[in-house]
């Protein structure tokens, strides 16, 4: 967040492109956020209980988790397509008057 713009000017001679690091870093954050939400969502669908009587994932939970990952990923693709379809308009129109 800090070295954007100004940052590239103050880059040391070691020839690091902070632009590039920044982009990779944002990509990493995105994947991590996606992963964390998938963990929570699939826990709610497959593992959540009102009381935990043991610490193992039983067979049913394991199968459910595996399918959940696949399904969550499909939803991500589908939503991505939807957003892309109207993405340009949406993004250009944002900024809500700031």
């Amino acid at each position: 967040m800090s070295f954007l713009g100004g940052g590239s000017r103050s880059a040391p001679s070691g020839s690091i492109s902070f632009e590039k690091i920044e982009m990779a870093s944002t990509e990493l954050d995105t994947v991590t956020d996606f992963f964390n939400r998938m963990v929570s969502s699939c826990h709610a669908k497959c593992v959540a209980a009102r009381f935990y009587t043991d610490g193992e994932l039983n067979k049913g939970e394991q199968v459910c988790i595996d399918r959940c990952v696949g399904k969550y990923n499909e939803v991500q693709k589908k939503v991505g397509e939807k957003i892309q379809a109207k993405g340009q308009a949406q993004q250009g129109g944002s900024g809500f008057g700031l």
Partner: peptide, 10 residues
Amino acid sequence: EKWLKHSERI
């Protein structure tokens, strides 16, 4: 215990 195993599996 379950959360850890769950995260790992995911």
